[in-house]
Design a protein around this nucleic acid. Structure first.
Length: 508
RNA sequence: CGGGAGGUAGUUCAGGCCGGUAGAAUGCCUGGUUUGGGACCAGGAGGUCGCAGGUUCGAAUCCUGUCCUCCCGACCA
């Protein structure tokens, strides 16, 4: 029997610890809890903008570095273009401009001054109005194509394969940490080619790079596909995408690669002479992924105890927690860890943290590193040293096992690989079991409401039907999968003839 | 941008109707005991109650405005 104060204490202790809302209870809150309490990001004083905290940024750096290498390996180089785009340039490609017009931040003045009526306060100086407004880039096609015009004269200048790592601003009505914020970080590749075929090949190649990255680094299975005309990037001829599925059954567009045709070349007058000295407009692509991937990563793998990060991009892959009584034991553990384990793991390029902070006890550390999604934890106590073993816990399954200290680094290395594969397989099994073929409207709605996930259904190919379905179900066509099977059928809404199934889902 | 909820110590929250010296737990600091799943004892520091006005002798509390966040909708990566 507990006394009242003891009850009180128990209650407070549990409510005060970094408790995470369960997915079942409130999926959105679970996600927010993970991002905030997992130390990935924080809110800021600026509406719609977040602070990416060191742990979250370390994750982004790992992702960025892996992607950057893949871009370089496919022949691209990095450059940097301005944050501001003069309005006249921005509006040059009409469809692109229209598509983004509703969410642009605009700079109209270049100076503040002291408010004469309100000492100590500043006001916009009406004398300092810009002659031409500057658009804060929501994407950089305009400024880049304006620049490319001066860089491209002949086929010898092509292909031009440039990427930039940057921030962009899209003024969103409703924001969500990482998934949708007013400002976000991304990379945008912008390439120019002599032929349409070459540009299409580039578009598809970069889609493959994204899919490769998502699956093999982030361990998030994705479906490669093409967007419908309605969902296409403003100004593109074709938009290819990778679509991932979150644990609540909603889809997430994880990356896009656009074949821009000659739209931007014509809008910015970018021509080249071919070998026969004939002038033609160049063919273009653009492709991007953003910090949104972090949100997708969190929602694809994590559980009610916290983040689950794939080893290949986890900022800390292994954490070692010493368990000791007194300085003698601590010294023995230190010796083993610092002189053997850490050097061996570091030699294998594994990032390892030894948490011998005496402020927190082991149990607290276990919970903390589980919250942060560190893939592997090694607990090492005096008892283990006597038996020449260590307790190894994996985050993905929460299984614990005792392994001999002989050959432990090799064991950890293979365990990290195993975890990487396991979380991918787990996410894939979930994804695959949530692609449902339906043949009637009732079934369509029922699957969306009850089972969730992707719904594979026939569609008559018209924008009107697509709109109508969106209106009725809040589901959009996520993509027409690449190499889609062609089969005759009837549109799930209109009954009109269809040649293939497309993937619908409610999406982030 | 519309509807709802919220903002008080680092964190989670109480207090608010009914105005009168700012509270709890946890965390933090010091010392000690501890350490195999979120330790314990003793002492201590910490808040212009989101911000700006107003009402009042007096405002965390009442009124007005404004900013930020969450949820639901319309918009979007």
């Amino acid at each position: 029997m507990l006394t009242a104060p003891e009850h009180e204490r128990l209650f407070n202790r549990s409510s005060m610890s970094k408790e995470i809302t369960s997915r079942e209870q409130d999926y959105s809150q679970w996600y927010i809890d993970l991002v905030l309490k997992g130390g990935l990001a924080d809110y800021s004083a600026v509406k719609g903008c977040m602070v990416i905290k060191p742990y979250g940024y370390a994750l982004w750096e790992k992702m960025r570095d892996a992607l950057d290498k893949m871009f370089k390996d496919t022949g691209h180089v990095n450059a940097y273009f301005p944050l501001f785009v003069p309005k006249s340039l921005f509006e040059a490609e009409e469809k692109n401009a229209e598509g983004f017009a509703k969410e642009c931040a605009v700079v109209t003045h270049y100076r503040l001054k002291t408010d004469p009526d309100n000492k100590g306060k500043l006001m916009v100086d009406p004398e300092a109005k810009l002659e031409e407004e500057l658009i804060v880039r929501p994407t950089s096609e305009a400024i880049i194509w304006n620049t490319y015009k001066g860089w491209i004269q002949s086929y010898r200048d092509l292909p031009l394969l440039i990427n930039q790592w940057a921030n962009v601003v899209r003024w969103e009505m409703r924001t969500r940490l990482f998934l949708r914020t007013a400002e976000f970080l991304w990379q945008e590749g912008h390439t120019a080619h002599a032929t349409a075929m070459e540009a299409v090949a580039e578009t598809k190649q970069m889609l493959e790079v994204y899919a490769d990255f998502a699956e093999n680094w982030m361990a998030v299975p994705v479906i490669k596909g093409v967007k419908t005309a309605n969902e296409r990037f403003a100004g593109a001829e074709d938009t290819y995408c990778i679509e991932a599925l979150m644990q609540d059954g909603k889809a997430l567009q994880a990356g896009t690669s656009h074949f821009l045709g000659q739209n931007f070349a014509k809008a910015f007058d970018v021509k080249f002479s071919d070998k026969e000295n004939k002038l033609d407009y160049v063919w273009a692509t653009s492709w991007g992924v953003s910090t949104r991937l972090i949100g997708g990563l969190v929602m694809a793998h994590s559980d009610d105890d916290g983040l689950i990060l794939p080893p290949r991009i986890a900022p800390v892959q292994v954490v070692i927690v010493p368990i000791y009584k007194g300085d003698d034991q601590k010294a023995r553990i230190d010796d083993k860890v610092k002189n053997e384990l850490i050097p061996a793991l570091k030699a294998a390029n594994i990032s390892v943290k030894y948490d011998d902070n005496d402020n927190a006890r082991p149990g607290w550390k276990f919970a903390e590193y589980e919250l942060k999604g560190v893939p592997v934890r090694i607990a090492l106590g005096a008892r283990d040293l006597d038996n020449n073993v260590a307790e190894v816990a994996r985050r993905d399954t929460k299984e614990k096992a005792s392994y001999s200290l002989d050959g432990l680094p090799e064991k950890i290395i293979s365990l990290l690989d195993e975890i990487q594969v396991n979380i991918y397989n787990r996410a894939k099994a979930y994804r695959d079991s949530h692609i449902t073929e339906v043949n009637s409207w009732d079934e369509f709605m029922q699957v969306l409401d009850e089972k969730t996930g992707f719904v594979s259904a026939h569609w008559d190919g018209t924008g009107e039907t697509e709109e109508k379905i969106k209106e009725l179900s809040k589901a959009t066509i996520r993509c027409i999968p690449l190499d889609n099977k062609q089969e005759a059928g009837k549109c799930v809404l209109t009954g009109n003839p269809s040649t293939q199934r497309v993937l619908f889902a409610r999406a982030y």
